[in-house]
Amino acid sequence: MSEATTPKEQTPKEHQQTPLDAATDRPGSPVPATSKPASGGNGLALLALLIAAAGAGAGGWGLWQLHELDAREQQQLSQVQAARSDAQRLQLAGNELKGRLDQLPSVDELESRRRLLAQLQGDQQLLNQRLESVLGASRQDWRLAEAEHLLRLASLRLSALQDINSATALVQAADDILHEQDDPAAFAAREQLAKSLEALRSTLNPDRTGLFLKLGALREQVVQLNAQAPIFSGEDGVLSELASEGSAEPTWWQRGLQTLSEYFRIDFNADQNIRPLLAGQSLTQVRLALSLALEQAQWGALNGQTEVFRQALQQAREVLDAHFDVDNPNTRALRARIDELATQPVGVTPPDLSPALNAVQAYLQAKQAARSQQKVEAEPAAADDIEAQLQEAPQ
């Protein structure tokens, strides 16, 4: 190598001089300012660090790749296991489906079941039609039976109680039921019902309830009746003698004679009836007899028994005239009231409802006969419809 080359023109290889070259240098040549051995050591160290870092990075990347590969293997393993599980389930499902397919009926069985289903549908349709007809007929029959029962009840009320108002309401209700039917065949029955209604409305309807209550009020007045003691007067009487004397204070014998005169009487003209005085138990018995007569009149008025009503009031009048003073205001008022109530009518002549009842019964029987005929005619037609449906069913 030449000594004339400068340090700038030397390559890195030229900086690395061998010991032989260093020994051949001339002594006394100038030494460069930069130490060549120190610069070469730093470069090697840096290079070694770079190589070590690259190796560490390569090792870390390799480890990371190994970890990723392991994770992928685990994921693939789980996927494989899931796929195996799915395959097993699919196999089980396939086996089950195959078993079910083996259990499916044949073509002949399907055809027989189809025909059976069509027959069942036809039977159900026929049953629905019959049910609708039966329900509709049942409602009409119930209403017509109710009308017949109302007429029977009205006839019973007339015969037993002579209750015109109740009978009129019952017959009107029966006519309303026939009106709801809207059937021209019910014309004859409604005609008889109209005649019965007019007969009931034109019949005399006495107020038997009011008459019963009035007689009850008279029974309460009987308790208030009291027999009056007769006071005798005359020119020969003791009281006339005492009055003529003009004594302001009668003596003891005069007072005693006056007291006895209220209980004893000497009448020389005994051509008239003398009524005994009523007191104590006798008065109670007479009041009871009068009250019982009025109670019997109440029963006759409430039940429309004219004869019983008249006889009971006549008996009450006789008891009142025989045992009570007719000049007493209470007795006179009670007698006048009894005479007034005796003229009130209590009995009625109810009309006959049997024609209306017979007409309704005839209409009901005609409806039932017509409905039975319709059922007999409808059954063959329904059977033909079912057979046609079976023939038209798809094969």
Score class of each variant (00 low, 15 high):
residue 91 Q to K: 00
residue 202 S to L: 02
residue 344 Q to A: 06
residue 173 A to H: 09
residue 28 G to Q: 08
residue 293 A to I: 02
residue 210 G to F: 07
residue 312 A to D: 01
residue 213 L to V: 09
residue 380 P to E: 02
residue 199 A to C: 05
residue 194 A to D: 05
residue 319 V to A: 09
residue 374 Q to S: 11
residue 19 P to T: 14
residue 112 S to P: 00
residue 26 R to T: 14
residue 218 L to W: 13
residue 151 L to C: 01
residue 307 E to V: 13
residue 129 Q to D: 02
residue 205 N to W: 02
residue 349 T to K: 14
residue 136 G to K: 01
residue 301 A to N: 06
residue 297 A to D: 03
residue 256 G to S: 14
residue 158 L to T: 01
residue 268 F to N: 13
residue 325 D to G: 04
residue 214 K to M: 05
residue 326 V to K: 13
residue 84 R to I: 06
residue 144 L to D: 04
residue 166 S to V: 05
residue 288 L to I: 05
residue 289 A to R: 10
residue 267 D to I: 07
residue 301 A to Q: 01
residue 201 R to G: 00
residue 162 Q to E: 06
residue 302 L to G: 07
residue 96 E to D: 09
residue 96 E to T: 01
residue 80 V to R: 15
residue 321 D to C: 09
residue 202 S to A: 09
residue 144 L to T: 08
residue 3 E to A: 12
residue 211 L to F: 09
residue 338 I to Q: 02
residue 184 P to L: 06
residue 354 S to L: 08
residue 376 V to L: 15
residue 214 K to H: 13
residue 170 L to Y: 10
residue 180 E to K: 06
residue 241 E to T: 12
residue 334 L to N: 03
residue 162 Q to T: 03
residue 244 S to C: 00
residue 300 G to A: 04
residue 135 L to A: 05
residue 239 L to D: 12
residue 95 N to A: 14
residue 140 Q to Y: 03
residue 167 A to H: 02
residue 296 Q to W: 08
residue 140 Q to H: 03
residue 172 Q to I: 00
residue 64 W to P: 01
residue 216 G to D: 09
residue 4 A to Y: 14
residue 218 L to E: 04
residue 314 Q to M: 14
residue 147 A to E: 03
residue 266 I to E: 08
residue 355 P to W: 03
residue 258 Q to Y: 07
residue 2 S to A: 11
residue 213 L to C: 05
residue 267 D to Q: 09
residue 212 F to A: 10
residue 157 R to V: 00
residue 94 G to R: 12
residue 327 D to N: 08
residue 16 Q to D: 13
residue 297 A to L: 03
residue 40 G to L: 15
residue 129 Q to A: 09
residue 222 V to S: 03
residue 109 E to N: 06
residue 337 R to D: 04
residue 155 S to K: 02
residue 240 S to F: 13
residue 190 R to I: 00
residue 10 Q to K: 15
residue 332 R to A: 09
residue 17 Q to I: 01
residue 333 A to S: 10
residue 395 Q to W: 12
residue 255 R to D: 07
residue 391 Q to H: 11
residue 256 G to N: 10
residue 288 L to R: 14
residue 392 E to C: 00
residue 382 A to P: 03
residue 3 E to K: 08
residue 26 R to W: 15
residue 271 D to M: 10
residue 27 P to V: 14
residue 349 T to H: 15
residue 238 V to W: 06
residue 51 I to C: 11
residue 203 T to S: 07
residue 222 V to L: 08
residue 259 T to H: 11
residue 356 A to F: 03
residue 42 N to D: 13
residue 176 D to P: 02
residue 212 F to I: 00
residue 138 S to H: 12
residue 268 F to D: 15
residue 292 L to S: 14
residue 15 H to C: 08
residue 224 Q to S: 09
